[in-house]
Simulated assay, not measured.
Amino acid sequence: MTGVLGYGQPMGGVAQTAFVVPDLREAVDRWIADMRAGPFFILDHFLVPGQTYRGEESRADITIAMGFAGHMLIELIQPLDSHPSVYQETIARRGYGFHHFGIACADVDAASRDYQARGYHEAFRAAVPTGGEVVYLDNGTGADWGFLELLPVTPGMDGTFTRFWEASRGWDGSDPVRSFL
């Protein structure tokens, strides 16, 4: 992988900004109308075997939408149940809104060890459909200030997010909600 992702963000830098929302479709509509972001790509019921929350098996189900505002990948996350999760932590602490920054990583496990040496711990881990696993990190202020998510830069991830970005370039507003896969 080169030092810059196909959609213009740097390796090791912020590649995504994420928000937890009560109603995904309403949030998508607002981002399109008010921020001119889009189109958005939706992945319904993201609950994968083996995902963990604070060291235990996680049963939290979410739906996500991703779209671009310029070169910034925006992720909208709607929890679909009340199972314990990093999303429910944020909602309980300060309500809906900003949730995390995603950091592009060539090696998520090595990056996680580096952050852990600086006082972070893994709050959530799950396999993703673009390859590899994401890891959410918390230094004790995640629910207050936002978590960090380590994003695995795989050919599938870079290709998928670059495809989303390319769809946003010169987008005319048609077909605003599309399938993630």
Results as ranks from 00 to 15, higher is better:
96 Y>D: 12
165 W>L: 02
99 H>A: 03
128 V>H: 13
179 S>I: 03
169 R>E: 14
180 F>C: 00
62 I>R: 05
165 W>I: 00
7 Y>H: 14
85 S>T: 04
172 D>I: 00
151 L>W: 08
66 M>Y: 01
6 G>V: 12
109 D>R: 12
93 R>T: 13
72 M>T: 12
151 L>T: 08
32 I>W: 05
54 R>S: 04
148 L>G: 03
76 L>T: 07
45 H>D: 15
87 Y>W: 15
15 A>V: 08
58 S>R: 10
113 R>M: 13
91 I>Y: 03
107 D>A: 09
123 A>D: 13
32 I>C: 05
114 D>C: 09
26 E>K: 12
82 S>W: 09
92 A>H: 06
179 S>Q: 05
106 A>Y: 14
60 A>N: 13
30 R>T: 11
68 F>D: 11
156 G>Y: 04
77 I>N: 01
154 T>V: 03
147 F>H: 05
35 M>V: 09
135 V>E: 02
37 A>F: 03
49 P>G: 14
157 M>E: 05
11 M>D: 03
21 V>S: 14
73 L>S: 11
37 A>M: 04
53 Y>T: 09
168 S>Q: 02
1 M>Q: 10
128 V>Y: 11
158 D>L: 04
163 R>A: 11
89 E>R: 12
139 N>C: 04
34 D>P: 00
129 P>R: 06
118 R>V: 09
107 D>K: 10
115 Y>I: 07
108 V>I: 08
56 E>T: 11
66 M>D: 01
103 I>V: 15
38 G>A: 07
105 C>R: 10
78 Q>K: 10
52 T>W: 01
180 F>S: 00
9 Q>T: 09
66 M>R: 00
178 R>D: 10
